[in-house]
């Protein structure tokens, strides 16, 4: 499968950074074309820096980055005609209405009236924005504004879409609508680079994932690859009283309210589940979630704040 985005030893140190701490350090990554590639990590992990370099919005310090075979520094013009981006914390221009945001963006990219109108109608429909099409952006909720921005880039003719935390602030239904639109976009063989704080979102959408921590690539691969790389790929949840000593013999024990969570290898997980059932305890078993993998690799939850000294990047 060909690469949509490729980086080699990519590093970024922001000018004026007192500690010279790299926001990205020695990042070598391959994003395959035609799929959703999820980038996860805590605040300050380097996700947005990576997106901004690849989307030609930010200069790199060393190494190289290519989009669809074009160097982001020396062939930026070739890159730009093939990409579209929803930046982190971006807002649609408040005096436009929803339809104008999408339509005028497409016109700005050079599409003719008929094509821009057709794509606008489709995108608004896909993201259930048709009923709001005449509503000024300033009268929309935060979630509808993010959805409008998603409609804008999904309606574009770009081959590679950068979505930097596109569903932040959306309610669960709206998130699902964006997910559906993203899935449809990949059916058109477009590549989507998605950064997100929502691990369920990354898992639901991404064919491949990269986990960033402190500017470095901690892990990358398909969700199955990631599971295979952790020590305990299965999780068993037991409700009720238990012997900690016994459960520890199966794997890693994490006490939870009203029971225990045990991370184990498959044979031990099956054995533990069987025993718990025999004792009449409520038990559930399944592969580890992305959140479990994140905790094991990073040692902290994704929503745990980075200490100030580390967050400079």
């Amino acid at each position: 499968m060909s690469s949509a985005i490729r980086t080699e030893h990519l590093s970024k140190i922001y000018p004026g950074s007192a500690s010279r701490t790299p926001a990205l350090a020695d990042l070598t990554l391959d994003v395959p074309a035609g799929r959703v590639f999820g980038v996860i990590g805590r605040n300050g992990a380097g996700k947005t820096t990576f997106v901004r370099i690849a989307a030609t919005q930010l200069e790199l310090t060393s190494g190289r980055a290519e989009v669809l075979g074009y160097d982001v520094m020396t062939q930026a013009r070739d890159v730009r005609v093939r990409i579209a981006c929803v930046p982190q914390e971006s807002r649609p221009l408040y005096f436009l209405n929803v339809e104008e945001v999408v339509y005028l963006y497409l016109k700005l990219r050079g599409l003719d009236h008929a094509e821009a109108r057709r794509r606008t109608t489709e995108a608004l429909d896909e993201l259930s924005l048709t009923e709001y099409r005449r509503r000024p952006v300033q009268r929309l909720s935060g979630g509808l504004r993010r959805r409008t921005l998603c409609a804008m880039v999904l309606a574009s003719d770009a081959d590679v879409l950068f979505l930097d935390e596109p569903t932040t602030g959306l309610d669960p239904i709206a998130r699902r609508q964006v997910w559906d639109a993203i899935r449809r976009a990949t059916k058109e063989q477009r590549t989507i680079l998605l950064t997100t704080h929502y691990l369920d979102e990354a898992e639901a959408l991404s064919a491949r994932l990269a986990l960033f921590e402190r500017g470095r690539l901690a892990l990358s691969g398909t969700p199955e690859d990631l599971r295979a790389r952790v020590r305990y790929p299965f999780r068993v949840t037991i409700q009720g009283a238990y012997s900690a000593e016994e459960l520890t013999s199966y794997g890693r024990l994490t006490p939870i309210e009203g029971g225990a969570l045990v991370f184990a290898r498959e044979p031990e997980a099956r054995e533990l589940a069987r025993r718990a059932l025999e004792r009449g305890q409520r038990v559930s078993m399944g592969p580890v979630t992305l959140e479990d993998i994140f905790l094991e690799v990073v040692g902290r939850a994704i929503d745990e704040e980075t200490p100030p000294a580390e967050a400079e990047a």
Partner: peptide
């Protein structure tokens, strides 16, 4: 305003508009 508050310039940079 467009550059910092709306990130509109970043949207434009990542497009064919020079």
């Amino acid at each position: 305003h467009y550059r910092h508050d709306m990130k509109f310039q970043d949207v434009v940079i990542a497009s064919p508009v020079e």
